[in-house]
């Protein structure tokens, strides 16, 4: 068979070769002129499309890398907002548990040393994840911290927090907050709640749990601020061995492979069994149960918990 070269196809082929070489070097700025007709023209158009696609993918990849970097920084900033150490309260054990989901989460907890006798304990869950959630979380945390220093009424702290936050929350966002003030002298805990899951209260003497649920709605739900976020306070007195557990719904809403929720009852069961062995033992057993319930599935939401337990006086 006779192979012959067409003089007319030499120039376009040369240009195509240069084009491919440039792309291999990472130079995607060139567009190949389509000068030929027929199959050669098809080839020129095809090469342009191919390089365009590679360029788009490369840009997306670069963007993705930048985003990942920024997410990492945001996560770092968020981590610094959580208390770096646990407050020391005589005759009390305090332990925490924080496991964010893969994205940046919107959970936080906080301890506020109001004065020598009073410790503020806050736990909150911000709707929305990622950067928007983290920003609202930062705003909510700092607002609440500032207000906590001004009054010993947790209900009032939540009301003031809502008032200050409302103008700055975009309409689709809200934040649930459980806030309590511990009077260290009398082991008394005064609680208020803005739409957050209830507090678990384990009473050692009775060996029973109850749920403490002061009435209230999440901050940001009542856009005009006409409805109070917190409409009552509840007070409990921590006896020896009593335990209070603040948590976010990432714990109770952990689902197993069939979609069955971990549930609040399960948390109470674990408290009854493990709380007598201390705050650390309760958290360890809870985490173990959560891990076995959730299995290898992805963690859908942040899980946050704060445990407060009054030590049993040595006999």
């Amino acid at each position: 068979m006779k192979i012959w070269r067409d003089k007319r196809s030499e120039e376009p082929l040369k240009r195509m070769l240069e084009f491919v070489n440039a792309a291999q070097r990472g130079d995607f700025s060139i567009t190949l002129p389509v000068t030929s007709s027929g199959e050669l023209g098809e080839l020129e158009r095809g090469l342009n499309r191919l390089v365009e696609e590679i360029r788009t993918n490369r840009d997306l990849w670069e963007e993705q890398k930048t985003l990942q970097r920024e997410l990492k920084i945001s996560r770092g900033i968020q981590a610094t907002l959580l208390p770096s150490s646990l407050p020391q309260v005589p005759a009390m054990e305090i332990e925490t548990f924080y496991r964010p989901a893969i994205q940046i989460g919107g959970d936080y907890y906080d301890f506020i040393e109001i004065d020598t006798n009073h410790l503020g304990i806050a736990i909150a869950d911000v709707s929305g994840k990622s950067v928007s959630g983290a920003m609202l979380m930062t705003l909510a945390r700092n607002t609440l911290r500032a207000q906590a220093m001004l009054t010993l009424s947790p209900q009032e702290v939540l009301e003031r927090t809502q008032k200050l936050l409302l103008p700055n929350i975009m309409s689709q966002f809200f934040v649930s907050i459980f806030y309590a003030i511990l009077d260290k002298r009398f082991n008394r805990l005064v609680c208020a709640n803005a739409g957050h899951p209830p507090l678990l209260y384990f009473r050692a003497e009775a060996g029973e749990c109850e749920w403490v649920r002061p009435k209230g709605i999440a901050v940001g739900l009542s856009r005009n601020g006409l409805r109070p976020v917190s409409s009552e306070e509840k007070e409990l007195s921590l006896g020896p061995g009593d335990l209070a557990f603040f948590y976010t719904d990432g714990i109770s809403d952990t689902t197993d492979i069939r979609g069955k929720y971990f549930g609040r009852d399960r948390i109470a069961e674990i408290a009854v069994k493990s709380a007598p062995r201390g705050a650390k033992a309760f958290l360890a057993d809870l985490q173990e149960a959560l891990a076995s319930h959730g299995g290898d599935g992805p963690q859908g939401d942040d899980m946050t918990g704060v445990v407060l337990r009054r030590l049993v006086a040595p006999s």
Partner: peptide
């Protein structure tokens, strides 16, 4: 309900 959604 916990969030207070049905209040709104």
């Amino acid at each position: 309900n916990l969030l207070g959604f049905f209040d709104i």
